[in-house]
């Protein structure tokens, strides 16, 4: 069933608090083979002007993937995950995510389209500190094949 265009603009409650640890940043950096010391050495991060070690530019997916999953599970969206592929991804950074950040992720449906029998769902997840400082936005376009 094609997605309802009226879904565009629908927002969801902020995620549970996500506390960013140095260990998680190191784990992510190692998984992508990134060796820049600003991801693992607080001294190097300080020298580069950061309050603590910073996360690589795509780290936000560790929080935003599950936040976007809340949208896919909305009964009005009900995306069939077995048919879903990741079509596009965008990150807009206001500042790097860093160790010690206490973040919440808020999803909003940005676009729905049906193209060639496929449903395309674009969700923007805004990541901010619990105090409301914007950190980054992650926009994912998912393609559900053959569902439209």
């Amino acid at each position: 069933m094609a997605l309802d265009p009226a879904l565009v603009g629908r927002s969801y409650p902020p995620s549970a608090l996500y506390e960013v640890s140095r260990q998680k940043i190191v784990e992510f950096a190692e998984a992508i083979g990134e060796t820049d010391p600003v991801h693992r050495d607080a001294e190097a991060a300080h020298a580069a002007g950061h309050p603590d070690v910073i996360a690589p530019p795509t780290f936000a997916i560790a929080l935003t993937l599950s936040a976007a999953g809340v949208v896919a599970e909305d009964p009005d969206v009900a995306l069939d995950y077995s048919r879903v592929v990741h079509g596009e991804q965008r990150f807009t950074h206001h500042r790097p995510i860093r160790a010690g950040d206490r973040l919440v992720a808020t999803p909003t449906i940005e676009a729905v389209r049906s193209v060639g029998g496929n449903d395309l769902l674009t969700t923007r997840v805004d990541v901010a500190t619990e105090d409301g400082e914007p950190v980054c936005s992650a926009t994912s376009m998912l393609v559900a094949r053959g569902t439209a």
């Binding site: 083979g33 990134e34 820049d36 580069a48 950061h50 530019p57 596009e88 950074h93």
Partner: peptide, 19 residues
């Protein structure tokens, strides 16, 4: 992204990224 930030010399320099 690694190829980009390795060139720029700073992982924090990447402000917008779309694939």
């Amino acid at each position: 992204a690694r190829a980009v930030t390795a060139w720029a010399g700073d992982p924090a320099a990447l402000v917008e990224y779309h694939v």
